[in-house]
Design a protein around this nucleic acid. Structure first.
Lengths: 194, 194
DNA sequence: ACCTCCTGGCTAAGAATGTTACCTTCGGGC
DNA sequence: GCCCGAAGGTAACATTCTTAGCCAGGAGGT
């Protein structure tokens, strides 16, 4: 029987598909192995265990979000950039619920953690949004936290769908973007609409 | 041997202590049983299983947050109310990390779900904050979403502590509160400082 | 006081899963 | 063609959730 040609990457991608289907809590080594046409113990040749696999899913997801943000922010600034970032983050959370959950549950340990580096790229995109508003460096640092809390928090509220309808969230999101955009413009040294 | 006097409530409280110590993912029936001086299968006389127990922890946590918010908002309005809500939510997330995680992971199924009712009380507190700003009903509805995303999102970013120091988060939170407070005051029909 | 019955806790056992130990075989380098 | 490391397989073990079935304890009626 030929080798399956596994490596950590293919296993992680298969695992990411699994969590998107069965939820992050439903991840099992057996399901991942099945998807790859392989037996569960074979996975341990490439990942150290389920915890490791979970971390790798989180790194993959944060990296993908970072990529998506970078693409979406090309050539946009101000309110358009805010909108693009919000809808990108939200779409990712909806299309890949398991992966997105991983980004919330798994936290980086040390600054060398690949997860940390992946997050830095996301933060860089958030910074790019703020750069367009021309606010000073200290405000930018604080606003970054607000932005992350807002974007992640909003995508988080989504699955708790019992409280709000899809449309209501859509409207709320657009309203919130207007709210934040206005606040940021007022902070700006050179208001774009004085 | 005397009866232990278990019921769903005591089991849930014990389980809540367990998750705060070992993390939500580390919850096992055995740990809960140990804490109560009882064998694991006995728990099944009062809760249907681990999933049920997880839901009950979430309900407990959301209820506690609701109570804490209600207390903290007594006699405060405007910016003070915002600050009180943020620090209350954040303190809860830090003091009871396992329980707080449960509020993020578990989602209500139907509108009769006790979890849904518990969330309604939290939303009621958020509404109370906004009420003080005198903004119209539609804006209030949208702002509620913003508030929930912000408060939960901020408490969520906290454990990902590799990226920001404690003080930095503190400052960012105060800055964000100022930001939101100003935005809300500008929405107000009767600006408090015209 | 005693009997009865249900409740609540226990032990034992089964099923699912994560993980390790060890074996086998593929496939490239000499 | 041989050798050896790496990749995958099988078997087995440990942990944990959960169910089945037993037994005691105590509340309530007589």
């Amino acid at each position: 029987m030929p080798r399956a040609g596994l490596d950590a990457g293919t296993i992680t991608r298969a695992a990411a598909e699994v969590v998107d289907e069965v939820g992050y809590a439903g991840l099992t080594m057996g399901l991942v192995a099945d998807r790859l046409g392989v037996r569960a113990p074979s996975l341990y040749k490439h990942v150290t265990g389920q915890a490791d696999l979970g971390r790798r899913i989180a790194v993959l997801a944060v990296t993908e979000i970072g990529d998506a943000l970078r693409d979406a922010l090309q050539g946009r600034s101000g309110r358009q950039a805010l909108e693009a970032a919000a809808s990108t983050t939200r779409r990712y959370a909806r299309d890949f619920p398991g992966r997105f959950a991983a980004t919330l549950y798994v936290t980086a340990a040390d600054p060398q953690d690949p997860l940390h580096l992946a997050w830095l790229r996301v933060v860089e995109s958030h910074s790019a949004i703020l750069r367009g508003y021309g606010i000073d460096e200290e405000d930018t640092r604080h606003a970054l936290l607000l932005l992350r809390a807002f974007l992640d928090g909003f995508s988080l509220v989504e699955p708790a769908g019992d409280m709000h309808t899809e449309d209501e969230i859509d409207l709320g999101l657009r309203w919130s973007i207007t709210f934040i955009d206005r606040g940021l413009r007022e902070l700006s040294d050179v208001p774009s609409s004085p």
